[in-house]
Design a protein around this nucleic acid. Structure first.
Lengths: 336, 336
DNA sequence: CTGAAAGCGCTTACAG
DNA sequence: CTGAAAGCGCTTACAG
C-alpha cells in the first residue's frame, strides 16, 4: 500500500510536506504543492484513515445503532429511510457511518465496542424502548450521542423526534370534528415511546373536546399488519364509528378486518393511520394518515451530533420535528 | 481515555504483558493474567481499535456498499433484510460493518475512500447494475470484495446470488403445466442483472416446452407497484391468460390493473410474482411467488469474504443460492 | 514468562 | 515555506 513516505520519496519532499498538501495546509508553496499533487493523483493516494485518526484523535466516523427484534423492521420502510437520512447527511459532511444492528438486549461486548473502541467519534441511536441498556450506558460514558426518538427517562440526553403526540392529537381531533363520536384507537406497544406518545395524543384530543375516554375503545397492537387485524377484531363488538391506528401497517390490518366484517370505510367506520407509508396512498380506500419526516429525522440527528461534537459541554439538544395530517378518503372527510 | 499504558501502571506490569492478556496470548502466567484482568474489568478497558488496526494491519471491519437511486429500496424489504444478514454474520464473527449508501454514479471520492482509506479489510457490494463503476474499480484494486448479485462482465469477481434464472424458469414452467398458453411477463429493468436473469428464466421455460415466445407478451417494468400496474395495462390488449411478474411489487400492481379491468385472478389471468414479500401472502387472492433467500445472501457474503481474506489468491467464489416456488392461489393451481 | 524497543502511517508543534 | 522529531495506542519479534 502506498503511504506518505512513498509519496515523499516520489516527489522529493519530506513526509511533513506531503501531509500538509494532502490536508490543504496553506503553508506550502504553490509549486511544491503542485508537484506533490501530481504524484498523489498519479498513484491514487489516500491517507490511511486509521493512522490519521490515531494521530488527530478522531476518526470522522459516526456510529448508527438500530435495535433489532422490532418486528416492524422487516415490513416497514422506517429504518431504511432513517438510514438514508443519516447516511446522506454523513456523506455530505465527509463522515462515514458504522452500522450496528443490535439485538434487543445488547450484549456487553457490543456496548463496549461502541463506546470504548475508538471506532467512532459519536453515535446516533435509534432507541425506541422505554428502558434501553445502551442509552443508560451512554449516559455515563464520554461518547457524544444523539437519540432518534425522545427518551423521557434521561433528562440529559439529546434527541430528535417526530411530534408523535401532536400528530396523533391532530388526527383524532380531525375525526371528532367530522362528527365521529365513538373514536377507538389501536395503539403501538406501550413499552415503545412512540407507542406511548401516540396514545397520549389520542387522549389529549378527547380531553380537548371534553369527551371522556372509554377504556374499552383502546386496544394495544404491535405496529404490524397482523397486530392491527387482531386488534380491530377485538374492537368490532364495541361498535366504534372511527379508529385511529397508531401506524399505517396496523391501519391496513384493521381495514382487512373491517372488510371481512362487511363494514364500509369510511361510511361505517372512519380510519386514520400514522406514518404515511407509500402503501397508504394505494389502499382501498386511500388511507388518511399522519406523515412523519423520517428522512429528516436522520439528517437532523447527524447535523446536531456534529454540532454537539464541536461544542462539547453545551446543553442537550431537544428537537421535535412537526408531523402533517394527510387527508385522503378513509376518514370520510369528503362525505360530510 | 484509558490506554494500555495506564492499565500497565495500575497492574504493575509492562504494556507488552497487558497487550498479551488482552489478546489471550498463552504466554502469560495465570497469576499476572488474573491481576491484569481485574484492572481491565474494573476500569472497563477496551483496546483502541484504530491503533490496533494500525499495528496489525487490519481493522476487523467490513464495508457494505448499497447503491441508492434504486426506487424499490424504499418500498421493498430487500435491502433491510440483506443488511440484517450481513450485520448478524459480522456480529457473530466479531466484525463491525461500515455502511455506504452510494449514489447511482459513485463519486470518485467515495470510491477512493472505500478502497484506499484502510477503513475496512474487505467490502461487500450489492451491485445490481450491469455496468457499475465501483465494481470496475474494485477489479483492479487490491481490496478483497464480494458481490451480492452476480456480475457477468467481470469474470474474476466473487459473488453470491439467488438463482434468479432458475426461479423464474420454475415459476413459468408451473404456469405452462397448469395449461396456460398465453403466458406474458412483466420484466424488471434490463440494465439490472436480476431483471435480465429473470427474463432469461422466462424464456428458458418457454423453450423447455417448445413454445415460441411472443415479443408482444413481454413488457418491461421497473420492479415497483406503479410500474407493474402500467405494464399490466399495456398487456391487457394482448389477452394473456397468465403473467409472470419479475417482482411481487409489480405483481401487486398488475393485480390492481386486472381488478380495474374486471378480470379475475386466477380464473381469467393466473399471476406469479418473485421475492415472497410479507405482503404476498395477504394479497387478494394470495400471491404465488418465488422466494429468494435474501438474509442468507447477506450472511453467505460475509462468510465467503472472510474465507477469501484468509486465503488470498484463491480462486473466485461463485455461489448461487436456490430459490423456492411458493404456491398460493393466484396461479390457479387449486383450480385445475 | 516478561520487558524494552521498533514499527504501523499519520499529524503537528518546533526550529530554522 | 520546509524538515526532523515526537507522539497517537497498539502489537510483536527479540533477548533474557
Amino acid at each position: 500500500m502506498m503511504n506518505l513516505e512513498e509519496i515523499a520519496k516520489l516527489s522529493g519532499v519530506s513526509r511533513s510536506t506531503v501531509s500538509r498538501v494532502v490536508n490543504n495546509d496553506p503553508n506550502v508553496s504553490s509549486v511544491t504543492r503542485e508537484r506533490v499533487m501530481q504524484v498523489v493523483k498519479r498513484v491514487n493516494y489516500t491517507p490511511n484513515a486509521a493512522a490519521r485518526g490515531l494521530a488527530v484523535g478522531h476518526t470522522h466516523v459516526l456510529g448508527l445503532v438500530i435495535p433489532m427484534g422490532v418486528a416492524a423492521l422487516f415490513t416497514d420502510p422506517y429504518f431504511p429511510i432513517l438510514i438514508q437520512g443519516v447516511s446522506s447527511a454523513c456523506n455530505s459532511r465527509e463522515y462515514s457511518v458504522m452500522l450496528w444492528l443490535a439485538e434487543p438486549e445488547y450484549e456487553r461486548r457490543m456496548i463496549r465496542q461502541i463506546m470504548y473502541s475508538g471506532l467512532v467519534d459519536a453515535v446516533i441511536v435509534s432507541s425506541m424502548l422505554l428502558n434501553d441498556s445502551l442509552v443508560q450506558a451512554l449516559g455515563d460514558g464520554g461518547l457524544p450521542f444523539m437519540l432518534v426518538g425522545r427518551h423521557p427517562t434521561d433528562a440529559h440526553a439529546s434527541y430528535v423526534d417526530a411530534d408523535n403526540l401532536g400528530g396523533a392529537r391532530e388526527a383524532v381531533t380531525h375525526l371528532l370534528r367530522m362528527g365521529r363520536t365513538r373514536v377507538a384507537t389501536i395503539t403501538g406497544p406501550q413499552n415503545m415511546i412512540a407507542g406511548a406518545d401516540r396514545l397520549a395524543g389520542y387522549l389529549a384530543a378527547l380531553r380537548d373536546r371534553a369527551v371522556v375516554s372509554d377504556p374499552s375503545l383502546i386496544v394495544e397492537g404491535d405496529f404490524t399488519e397482523a397486530g392491527g387485524y387482531l386488534a380491530m377484531q377485538q374492537l368490532l363488538s364495541r361498535r366504534p364509528d372511527a379508529v385511529f391506528a397508531a401506524s399505517d401497517m396496523m391501519a391496513i390490518g384493521a381495514m382487512r378486518a373491517l372488510r371481512e366484517a362487511s363494514l364500509r370505510v369510511p361510511e361505517d367506520v372512519a380510519l386514520v393511520g400514522f406514518d404515511d407509508l407509500p402503501q397508504a396512498a394505494r389502499t382501498e380506500p386511500p388511507l388518511t394518515t399522519v406523515r412523519q419526516p423520517v428522512y429528516r429525522l436522520g439528517a437532523t440527528a447527524v447535523d446536531s451530533l456534529l454540532d454537539l461534537i464541536d461544542h462539547p459541554g453545551s446543553s442537550p439538544r431537544r428537537i421535535v420535528l412537526p408531523t402533517e395530517l394527510v387527508v385522503r378518503s378513509s376518514c370520510g372527510s369528503a362525505l360530510r
